[in-house]
């Protein structure tokens, strides 16, 4: 079964108290090290952003299909897969970032969680806006505000892993 390469969803802009996107969100803010012993993905969702000031209750507010919009160097720090899996557990359908931490980026791609990088000087919208994201072209359309943003499309290997579901299935082909 082919997975969708265009998705639509409501965005969460992960901002500070001044309304600016937070840069350098570390994996300890996404999934704190006190929960590292957890190996069951179903247990992971409730800890998403549990150590990020102002976002501790994110797991209760997020809905299946929602899209994250974040700043620079998202997912810096640890190699923990749980920092990706906690969003998959919540049903987050994509993460749009100005840039990702290098290990985090791999972890998302390998788990088949769609991620795109968009230009640093661009604003995608505000929390609650509806956006349409095209993984093939990298086009992001803010349907609420009627804005177009050009992000980097999926790379070839990223699309292949995504279509396979994850790195394991991709490797078995």
């Amino acid at each position: 079964m082919k997975r969708e390469t265009k998705i639509e969803g409501k965005i969460w802009c992960i901002t500070d108290e001044k309304g600016n996107l937070i840069d350098d969100i570390d994996t300890d803010m996404i999934f704190h090290n006190s929960h590292l012993h957890i190996t069951d993905i179903n247990e992971m969702g409730k800890y998403a952003f549990g150590n990020l000031k102002g976002w501790e209750d994110f797991s209760k507010r997020a809905k299946k299909g929602d899209i994250l919009v974040v700043g620079k160097n998202f997912g810096a720090g640890s190699s923990r897969q749980q920092a990706v899996d906690c969003f998959i557990a919540l049903g987050i359908s994509a993460i749009l970032a100005k840039s990702f931490g290098a290990i985090y980026k791999r972890n998302c791609i390998n788990s088949g969680l769609p991620i795109l990088e968009y230009p640093e000087d661009v604003k995608i919208g505000d929390t609650g806006d509806k956006v349409l994201v095209d993984f093939k072209t990298g086009e992001i359309k803010n349907l609420t505000k009627n804005l177009f943003i050009h992000a980097k499309p999926f790379s070839k290997v990223q699309m292949e892993i995504y279509q396979a579901g994850n790195l394991f299935n991709f490797g078995k082909k």
Binding site: R80, N107, N110, F168
Partner: peptide, 8 residues
């Protein structure tokens, strides 16, 4: 690396 990469 994360655990998916390492398992692979």
């Amino acid at each position: 690396m994360g655990d998916v990469d390492i398992t692979f």
